Simulated assay, not measured.
Amino acid sequence: MSNPSSPASSLQVIAIGNAIVDVMAPCADALIERLGLVRGGMTLVDTDRAQELYDAMGPAREISGGSAANTLAGLAALGSSCAFIGQVAQDQMGEVFAHDIRAGGISFETPARAGDPPTARCLIFVTPDGQRTMNTYLGASQFLPPAALDEAAIAAAQVLYLEGYLWDPEEPRSAMRRAIAAARNAGRKVAFTLSDAFVIARHGDDFRSLIEAGEIDILFANHIELAALTGQDDFHAGIDALKSKVPMLVVTRSEHGAVAACGGELFEVRAEPVEQVIDTTGAGDLFAAGFLHGHVQGRPPAECLEIGAICAAEIISHYGARPEANLKDLIDARFG
């Protein structure tokens, strides 16, 4: 995972997630209805549906994505040392993904997979209000084997960050369980993002078991996922149901900001003002990047929340889930 000039021990965050290329296009609200899409959500699609949706898209941009990879892109842009574990195929999109993530300063050494299926892609329809409707073809990403793990790098990194989306396929789920064991055996922290309510509907029992067993140190969720996991529609009741079970609970609330529950205290941050919301793709991913960057630097929870909010605001001000502004400059302008 690491190269000789960058020893594994220098890693701050190592993440396991879907290696996906985002294919993004603006669309009218009517197209969402005509295609029968779940507005604002993420739906898994098969090969035929992926082709149907791609054919229906207008002019599109291809941008390397994937939730955990987006988070690492933000972390690297902020100056954290990172590595990514994820599966691509030996095809053009796989080469695009690998080039993009390495160009961002992130170590990526997972060997590409020969043959079908092709590299994963997420077909994203962006409506005029900036809302994104995602349709994900998982392709090669769902065949990440446990053998692809660099357990020495996982044991050396400060934080192992896991993407809930990748819990769905059996092979990478097994790899992630093995990675959790490697991190915990080395006394490292495990951070987990719930990703989407549909993942919780399928694997909530697994997630609740991990939490009850004390295997999650930092849990990221949005308010919808919090309700799905706890069964509590009231936001604060959901916080109360989880705050004693994870050392750090971080919950985002879109335009209402975010909260963190830690050490018996509740910290809150307002959403950063944005001149215009262009595209909400990756807002949660970049919030997690800012929060984790602050965390590995040893900053207090309130500052971690604020850094997360700044990063999320930057990402929703343009198309795509990778930062375009200099995140370091934005943080330095606030904190010096």
Rank of each mutant, 00 (worst) to 15 (best):
N3Q: 15
N3L: 14
P4S: 04
S9W: 03
L11V: 11
Q12W: 11
A15R: 09
N18E: 14
N18K: 14
I32F: 10
L35K: 04
M42K: 13
M42W: 11
T43K: 14
T47L: 15
R49W: 06
Q51N: 13
E52H: 12
L53F: 07
M57A: 01
S64R: 05
S64F: 03
S67R: 04
A69W: 01
T71L: 03
G74I: 03
G74R: 04
L75R: 01
F84E: 08
I85N: 11
G86W: 09
Q87M: 13
M93A: 11
E95S: 09
F97H: 01
F97N: 00
F97C: 03
D100K: 00
R102W: 10
G105D: 07
G105L: 05
P111Y: 05
A112T: 04
P117E: 12
V126A: 06
Q131S: 05
T133K: 01
L138V: 08
S141K: 06
F143D: 12
A147K: 15
L149F: 10
E151Y: 00
A153K: 00
Y165F: 12
S174T: 06
I180T: 13
I180G: 15
I180V: 14
A181S: 04
A183W: 12
N185A: 14
G187E: 11
V190I: 14
A197D: 11
F198K: 12
V199M: 07
A201Y: 13
A213Y: 05
F220H: 08
N222E: 10
A228N: 03
A228E: 03
L229V: 03
T230S: 10
T230V: 07
Q232D: 06
D233G: 10
D234A: 05
L242A: 01
S244W: 10
V246E: 01
L249S: 06
G264C: 08
E265F: 15
L266M: 13
V269W: 11
E275A: 12
Q276I: 12
T281Y: 03
T281K: 02
D285L: 01
G290T: 08
L292G: 09
G294P: 10
P300D: 13
I307A: 08
I310M: 08
A313F: 08
E324C: 14
E324V: 12
E324Y: 15
E324H: 15
N326K: 13
L327V: 00
L327P: 04
